[in-house]
Design a protein around this nucleic acid. Sequence first.
DNA 1: TCCTCACACATTATCGATAATCCTTGACAG
DNA 2: CTGTCAAGGATTATCGATAATGTGTGAGGA
Lengths: 222, 222
Amino acid sequence: MSNQARPASGSTRLARLTVADQVRDYLVVEISEGRLAPGSPIRELEIAELLGTSQTPVREALRELAALGLIDVRRHVGARVRDMAEQDLVDSVPVRAALESLAGRIAVSVPQPARDAIQLAYDDLLEAAEGGDPLVYAKASTEFHRSVVRAAGNDALERAWNSLGIEVMTIMATANHDGPLVEAARAHAEIVEAIGSGDADRAERVLHDHQDHYLPTTRRPA
Amino acid sequence: MSNQARPASGSTRLARLTVADQVRDYLVVEISEGRLAPGSPIRELEIAELLGTSQTPVREALRELAALGLIDVRRHVGARVRDMAEQDLVDSVPVRAALESLAGRIAVSVPQPARDAIQLAYDDLLEAAEGGDPLVYAKASTEFHRSVVRAAGNDALERAWNSLGIEVMTIMATANHDGPLVEAARAHAEIVEAIGSGDADRAERVLHDHQDHYLPTTRRPA
DNA sequence: TCCTCACACATTATCGATAATCCTTGACAG
DNA sequence: CTGTCAAGGATTATCGATAATGTGTGAGGA
């Protein structure tokens, strides 16, 4: 879905956003920052008017958000913001664990260049953490995990992972999080090492266990 | 995405299909049966004219197909059928294994009513196999696996599984398959039993290993 | 009281037409 | 001969308006 126009981590790739993309981004921010509360109805024409566009791109954006599980759409009736409260965050953890540990297992036996992106993403993550902005950190963290999944070179895996809407989850989990970001970032070093070590079992285990960091109750393991 | 209007296995739930849904189904069949070969360009207006609709529902269908990885879309340029030859089928197997084995592990400890649907889906599958139509069988098989995933009651898991486009995969894998369908159907009995047994490890293992049936080279293990 | 059903309303789903964008081709300068 | 750039054509992206659909409401009967 959002397969193109995804800015590469760090670099400023120029890719003009379509109106539909902008609407999607707008809605994601509104939802993840709580201005569109769970249960709020989202009417296509209302959003269209608000943003000065027509119904079509709004509609397209809504379908994407539905695919990410951010909203519920009932045909001919309308869309509302899903209540992602704790449940979805909790639900997504074992799924992430399953997918990312699989990615880790595959990634160790992939040619080196494919793994370079992981190191770069880790550097970006540290930098973002030092910046101190939770939103930037959340995005960098998402990109790091995405780089691991991508390194496996399995399209089906990447698609499944994308469908979890990790970015939004991470933003939501990080929003109320005022702990030390740098420390959280450093927890990812273990992943880089494990994949670099070439030990498939270790990479699998490390990535599986890492997901505990994203459980609400264990959010600040330090 | 295709979250509603999915006919319940066997029963004839009345849910009128929107034009977009019909277009999607049309394209899925055309692609999976090879009439739209890999690499073929798909022009929105051409399909619209062909089916007597407007561009809008075609466009919507294409976005869904892109999300399933069935086509590649380049903005302002067009869509082409992806070459799913073997690679995507092979890629999806370990991902299915990871997701469905997780589903099995969870499903064993879920209240009984949630598991009834699995038995019903299995009955439908047997019936479809006896009918002899590979297309019907493929759909029933998909529904069976979906029922297992759904039994876990984890939305994130279900979404990730849906993103794999299992239905199309199964159709494609079954299309060139003229072996005994009933035998293939019975291979699913083991899954029903394992989940019914309450043994999480067993359910996980059975569902993991079952995926080998979908490897092209092992398609007819008998 | 409770149920059924027709009708009005709110909202989406679809349409036909236009605007925006990208790719290609060919001319032209270096 | 090669690289750059500017039209032209093909296709998508967006628009504004209309059709189709699901839901709630209230009248009427059992």
